[in-house]
Structures are given as C-alpha cells and as structure tokens.
Nucleic acid binder design. Structure first.
Lengths: 117, 117
DNA sequence: AAAGTTGTGCTATTACAAATAGAACAATAG
DNA sequence: CTATTGTTCTATTTGTAATAGCACAACTTT
C-alpha cells in the first residue's frame, strides 16, 4: 500500500497520509498523471474514515501536488515532482541533527523560523 | 522582547514561544547561564496565560535546553548551544526548497517523515 | 443514454489538546 | 523573613481531528 499510517503516532492521520505521498513523490515513485487510490478504497484498507483521506488529498491539492476531479480521483499534478537533490539534502540534515542530539521539534522550529524570514 | 508569538498562526502558542528561544539560541543570542524572562512577566507582556508560557519552558527543559528552578527562573542550560553547522545546513536547505517552490509545509513533512524512519 | 465511480458539501457527534482561570504550594534569592 | 518563581491541582472553554451518514455533482465506463 502506497499510503501508510501509524495509529499510535500523535501526528494527525491526514497529515501522515499526505506525508507518505510527498515522500513517494520525492523518491520518484510517483509521476505526473499517475492516479492515487480512491479515497473510499484507502479508507476501507486502512480502516479510517473517507473524510480523513479526502482531507489529506485536499491538503496535497492546496500544495499543488495533485489534481482532484470527481469521477476521476486524485491525480499527480503536472510539475509536482520534488527534486531528488532536495530529498538528499533533507536526509543529510536529519542525519546531522541526529548525530548532534537535536530533536525533530527543534529542527522543525529552525526550519520554519528560517522560512518566515 | 525575546519571545514572540503570532496569535493568528495555527502553531500552538507554547510551540511558538519555544521556537523563538531555540532560534535565538541557534543564532548565538543566548548563552549558557543567561536567564529567560519570568513566566509571569512574559504572560503579562504577551497577554497570554502563565501556564502557556510555562508549558513552553517545560518543553525546552525536556529538550535539555534550559534549567528550571523555583525562585530562580528559566536559565539556559550548559551545553545548550546549537552547532552553527546545523544552522548553516538549515539555511541551505530552506534556500534550496524556496528556489524550487517547495512550501514550508512540504519541507517540514519531509523532515518529520525522514526523522521517524 | 444509462450506470457506476469519485470527489464535494452538509450536518452531527465524539475525543482530545490548547489555552484560559484561579488557587495553594515549594524552593530559591535577597 | 519576605518576595520571587516555578510546580501542582482542579475546572472551563474553545478549536481541531476523526468519525458517521447522507445527498449531490461531475466525470468515466459500458
């Protein structure tokens, strides 16, 4: 299954779903035009509510990563490919932070702080 | 004021407070032994509840960034300095993401995704 | 054209976290 | 001793996540 969730995590389910799509996108496992599984299927497979899945899809749409159309489903948007270099940079940064004992919260705080400058 | 918040943000206030301290720490504007403003003062200045401020301070304590003692207040912990290399890496990553039109949300999602692997 | 699929929109409920409020308390500083 | 400052407790309000069910609109398939 492309979409994964960890029910024990404190991260909202819809965020986890969106994150797994982003990660797959960054890895090159998804390309423009490809279709994501229908919200009803995902909801049934993961035993969650369809609205939760749709909320994840709508987040991805708001980011411009997928197109949503009734009858057709969720399709990876044109130009939605995340650069592998970016993913590589993320891996390095996380590794660096781990080695220094810097937690995820701290790292995210630094990122958002830098972003809003 | 060292601690800043954006009441309009969806990020919890206590998270924003902690983030601003982390950022100041990363910039070198705070050093071990320095004292953060008392929770009651911060609460009054920002017109928020003292418990919200204390929750931020306690988060920072849980990360080992500050020491909390009654009567004395919140003091930057020994060895709390964040490595400049890490900050540099963050700057580069954010710049890279910006150039590619990757939003803060996506970037944060990639980071947390990589962290929980 | 008809039938089936899929996202959209709506109301409603439950569960949980954030933030607020007020009070009493314990440890430290002066 | 007194003032300061974080700790702990109970309680309430508010907002978001997640669930549930239904009707509907747009698109695809036959």
């Amino acid at each position: 299954m492309l979409l994964r969730i960890d029910p024990a995590s404190s991260v909202p389910i819809f965020e986890q779903l969106a994150a797994s799509v982003r990660a797959e996108l960054a890895r090159g496992g998804l390309r423009a035009g490809e279709r994501l599984p229908g919200a009803r299927d995902v909801a049934a497979a993961l035993e969650i509510n369809i609205h939760t899945v749709l909320k994840a899809y709508q987040s991805l749409r708001d980011e411009g990563l997928v197109d949503l159309r009734r009858g057709r489903g969720a399709v990876i948007a044109e130009g939605a490919a995340l650069a592998p270099e970016l993913l590589e940079a993320v891996r390095e940064l996380v590794g660096e932070a781990r080695r220094r004992g810097v937690g995820a919260g701290t790292l995210v705080a630094l990122i958002t702080e830098e972003y809003t400058r």
